[in-house]
Write a protein that binds this DNA or RNA. Structure first.
Lengths: 178, 178
DNA sequence: GTCCACATGTAACTGGTTACATGATTGG
DNA sequence: CCAATCATGTAACCAGTTACATGTGGAC
């Protein structure tokens, strides 16, 4: 039950239409909560039906016509409640680790190339995050909002750093394998 | 499509019944691919229907009777194929980061306590992993299988280390917030 | 007028979660 | 014989994914 709250957050930052939301998810929020346009439209419908958001009065009708939404007070209240409520961290689920474990049983043939490819992907992601940090959080800016957003970006940077380091370590191990 | 391969791996390590698998998932493999007994039974049924595993001939019938499975050659081949095949890393999805981002909009009331709780949980998990490392991977043991399994455990340790450090950093930031 | 990009949606499917049902075995 | 535990399973639901459908408006 997190997608509706991701949408509420995005809409509070700026009222938007479904496609605008999709685009913004591809950027900032999507870095830690991705969503496709189908998911977003479905969820917008539900949120409107529940009275947490409403369509901005402009062009009403349906297909092909842009429809923007804004958050209602009940929606803000729900987001506030959800943000403060305790939630357990989800257990890790990682395919590469599973494959590595499987390779201990069926052999390591072929997996090394994909480890290398993943390393490249994570290096690219890390570079992108560091670019954003340089652009959006130069030293000195420190409103509460900025500090919180910077903290989230920091998690992304540190996570990608972890992966690149671990993947390099893994590749070294592979180089030594008989 | 990873649960069947997680099960194949576990069954190759040791033929087991559904409940035994569930227990072993709660330990080793479940640390990076968790599954409930319902999922496991469903998947065992599918794998048997596809001819990748078979029930060990012992007691046949149904409810209440233990039923153990072993992997057939086709199953091993499928696992080998899957392990070597390239797969893209899944984009990150983390609720706590989303909540932090939301708190930049609706206020930080209440979230700090849960950050603290998560820190404790991750510290406990880290301690557990380090215990396993001390027990199962003392310096010197280094068969290929051991090295691969150690590599996977290392990822768990480094990930939990990342989370504890990041959460401590986050709590320090909160302490400084106006 | 036709094509393409923009924009909103529907439908079917897959995988994971939650709640519950049922039979077998064993210790008291 | 009864309760607890072991063991296998069903059903309903929810969220995310994939494929496709439909309408609008502007560029050429």
């Amino acid at each position: 039950m997190s997608l509706p709250h991701a949408i509420l957050t995005a809409l509070l930052e700026k009222p938007s239409s479904g496609l605008e939301l999709t685009r913004r998810f591809d950027k900032s929020i999507g870095y830690f909560w991705s969503a496709t346009h189908q998911q977003i439209y479905r969820e917008l419908g539900k949120l409107e039906a529940e009275g947490l958001i409403r369509a901005l009065p402009a062009q009403q009708p349906a297909r092909g016509q842009k429809k923007s939404y804004e958050v209602l007070p009940t929606g803000r209240a729900e987001l506030t409640r959800w943000t403060a409520a305790a939630q357990d961290p989800k257990p890790l689920r990682d395919v590469m680790l599973l494959r590595l474990r499987a390779s201990a049983v069926v052999g390591t043939e072929g997996i090394e190339a994909d480890l290398r490819r993943h390393l490249e992907l994570h290096e690219r992601q890390l570079a992108e995050y560091e670019e954003i940090e340089k652009r959006d959080f130069p030293p000195g800016k420190d409103s509460t909002e900025d500090r919180l957003r910077h903290l989230v970006l920091r998690a992304g940077i540190d996570l990608e750093t972890f992966w690149t380091q671990w993947l390099r370590h893994a590749l070294e191990e592979f180089a030594e394998l008989p």
